[in-house]
Design a protein around this nucleic acid. Structure first.
Length: 214
DNA sequence: ACCCAGGTGTTTC
DNA sequence: GAAACACATGGG
């Protein structure tokens, strides 16, 4: 098996192992929609299955639009997302972000076109990962999402980094020639699929044996 | 009973 | 800056 030297090698190995097998081209459920904002906050330090339950609860209460969440009763909102953990903080963040988006951009579609990374980072409850998840999966912008899975995978391979930004740069710079593997794919979609492959690999193969040497 | 999960904010050195 | 801690629920 060939060695891992850069992000392109990782991408190639995941693809060859069959992890590029998605129902949707952008992997994240509801990509391009308001739902991504909800999921990005709800999934913080929480299993995705809990997020799916919360999203279903929210939808059942009609809290699946920007306006509805912005105007929601806080108690109802908290009850819907309780099983995702940190429900008091997260309800505050969800509502705060939705209200800020309404005030600054008016509606989700305008937000998706006009928002930038700095604006998202200035919102309470949105750190680097959640911000990049929204930028990539809701706005289709070219930001690679660095999550705990990605960090663990890189550590398993033997790479050490000091910060989120270093990892993101290393991944994005290393993917400059991704066209060798995916000739006709948009860069934003490539980032999304790559991140998706890492997550699916992590779930199936918690120790990342696919990347263990020796 | 203990540890972890698709993080982030606050406090403290 | 970068550690240490709180935030909360639920499954292995």
């Amino acid at each position: 098996m060939s060695e891992i030297y850069n992000a392109l090698d990782i991408l190639r190995r995941l693809k060859d192992a069959g992890y590029d097998d998605f129902e949707h081209p952008y992997w994240w459920p509801g990509a391009g929609s308001f739902e991504v904002i909800m999921g990005a906050i709800l999934t913080q330090n929480t299993r995705w299955e809990r997020v799916e339950e919360s999203l279903a609860q929210l939808k059942a209460k009609g809290l699946d639009t920007l306006d509805a969440v912005a105007n929601a009763d806080t108690g109802i909102l908290q009850e819907c997302i309780r099983r995702s953990g940190f429900y008091k903080s997260k309800s505050k963040y969800l509502q705060g972000v939705c209200r800020a988006i309404k005030q600054e951009y008016g509606d989700f579609d305008t937000f998706a076109v006009e928002v930038d990374r700095q604006w998202l980072l200035s919102q309470k409850g949105l750190g680097e990962e959640s911000t990049d998840a929204i930028l990539n999966y809701a706005c289709f912008q070219e930001y690679f999402v660095v999550d705990r899975y990605t960090q663990r995978m890189l550590h398993t391979i033997g790479f050490e980094f000091d910060s989120y930004g270093e990892i993101q740069s290393w991944m994005q710079n290393g993917l400059k020639r991704y066209g060798e593997i995916y000739p006709d794919m948009e860069r934003a979609q490539l980032y999304a699929r790559f991140h998706g492959m890492i997550v699916e690999c992590a779930k199936k193969d918690k120790k990342f044996t696919l990347f263990q040497t020796g």
